[in-house]
Structure formats: C-alpha cells, structure tokens
C-alpha cells in the first residue's frame, strides 16, 4: 500500500514537473520544475529498474551492457561518415567484444582480442587513416538512395539470419552430434566451463589434447593444432614481408637516361 502510494506520488510529481517545464515561458523560473522532474523521475527509474531486474545477476547485467556496446559500436561504424569516428566506434565495438569473451569464460581469447585486435590491428588502421587523408574537408558521401537500399537489404539479411539461427534447437543438435545425452556432464568441470583455458590452449597448439583424451579413453585421441599453428606462423611471416614490400616508399621513375630507376 505504501509503495503504491509513493509510486503514484512520484509519478504525479514527475508529470507536474514536466508540465511546468513545458508551460513556463520564463527561463529563470523553470529551474524548480526541472529539479522536481529530474529528482522524481530519477528515483522512479532507479526504483523500477531495481524491482524489474531483481533476479538478474551482475554477470547478466555486464553481459547486456557489453552486448549493447558491441551493437552500438557496430552501428556507429556503419552510420558515421568521418573515418576517424569510424575507427573510434570500431575500438568501442571490438573492446566490448573482448569483454564478452571474458564473460564467456574465454580468458585467453579475450586477452588476445585486446592485445592483437585493439592494440595492433586498430592502430594499423588508424595509421592507414592518417597516411591516406585527402584533405580535411573531403568526405566521400554515400548517396541517400544507396542508404535506403542498404537499410532494406540489411534488415532483410538480419531477419533471415535471426529466423534461421533461432529456429534451430542448439541443445538437440549438440546431443545429436555427440551421440549421447551426457554432453553437459562430459564438458562440465572442463576448462572451458571454469574459464581457465590458458594451459589447455597451449597444449592444443602444441598438438596435445589431454582434455579430450582423458575424458574418453576408448576413443581416438583428440586432434591437436600443431600443423595449423605452424602454417599460420609461416603465413604471418610471409604476409608481413609482403606488406613491407608492397607499402615501401617508392621513388618516382626517373626519365633521364643514365640514372637507374629504383
């Protein structure tokens, strides 16, 4: 009864403050109305959200926050015209993704995401932005018709992906793949569930899978990733040499005879 009374009282005060704010013409006399509206609305918002999210845990709140930041950053990358702002929104999106990785118990992948992606790839992209700036007032606009077409096609694509992905019962697929109904029991207590994946990841990259081998002794041993790891290492070396070759500063070819072109 008392909570109901306070709820309606706060709501009436908030509405009265808003009405006063809209009706009062004199700017100097708006301040008390504004204060009434802000205080009552803020108390209402905090109270109601506390009631609504009473059963959610801190990790769920963080999950929602990081997820919202990821989506917001991605939309910012798409919608902003300035390429420097795009880089900023990309940092927001990728950094929040690493937060999601930490919440999904992938500690090493989250750390690598922060180090390599946000610390390396994005710095590279920002250097690219700085090295290719073509004047401070030159913006390469996208025409409105292209925006409309992109919005239609992207909403259709998003709907298609969500319908097809949500239509699958992943739990059932999981059981069918594993061939038994004790998948959760088998993976319970493993490193992926506990969030201590650093040592198993290192073993797997060296070709050892003790997590698989110990759980199912009769089955063929789990596949390690030594060969892909080496291929990716050599690939990275080749790519870096190629990038340095492609991006090196060239001199203009000298047309005068007798000098060597570089």
């Amino acid at each position: 009864m008392a909570t109901n009374f306070f709820f309606w009282l706060l709501l009436v005060v908030a509405i009265a403050g808003l009405a006063g704010l809209l009706l009062v013409r004199d700017a100097s006399r708006r301040t008390p109305w504004l204060a009434a509206f802000l205080v009552s609305f803020g108390v209402l918002a905090v109270w109601q959200s506390a009631v609504m999210f009473k059963d959610t845990t801190a990790s769920q709140v963080l999950f929602s926050l990081f997820g919202a930041a990821v989506c917001f950053g991605a939309l910012g990358v798409v919608l902003s015209q300035n390429v420097v702002r795009m880089a900023f929104w990309l940092i927001v999106s990728l950094g929040s993704t690493s937060g999601l990785f930490f919440l999904l118990n992938a500690d090493f992948v989250g750390a690598v995401q922060l180090l390599v992606y946000v610390g390396g790839t994005l710095v590279l992209l920002i250097f690219g932005v700085m090295l290719t700036a073509s004047g401070p007032y030159v913006t390469m606009k996208t025409s409105p018709t292209e925006w409309v077409a992109a919005a239609v096609v992207s909403s259709l694509l998003l709907g298609l992906i969500l319908v097809s992905a949500f239509g699958v019962d992943w739990q059932a697929v999981d059981y069918a793949e594993a061939g038994n109904t004790t998948t959760q029991d088998a993976s319970a207590g493993s490193s992926v569930q506990e969030g201590t994946t650093l040592r198993p990841l290192g073993w797997a990259l060296l070709g050892l899978r003790p997590d698989k081998d110990l759980q199912k002794p009769g089955e063929p041993s789990g596949v390690g990733y030594l060969l892909p790891f080496e291929i990716v290492s050599v690939h990275l070396l080749v790519v870096l040499i190629g990038a340095a070759y492609l991006a090196r500063a060239k001199r203009r070819v000298d047309q005068t005879p007798g000098t060597t072109a570089l």
Binding site: V70, C71, L157, I161
Partner: peptide, 9 residues
C-alpha cells in the same frame, strides 16, 4: 548477427 550485418553494410 548484428555485427555481421553491420560489417556487410
């Protein structure tokens, strides 16, 4: 899905 569609657009 939101990330993917944003990237494609």
């Amino acid at each position: 899905a939101v990330l993917f569609v944003s990237g494609v657009v």
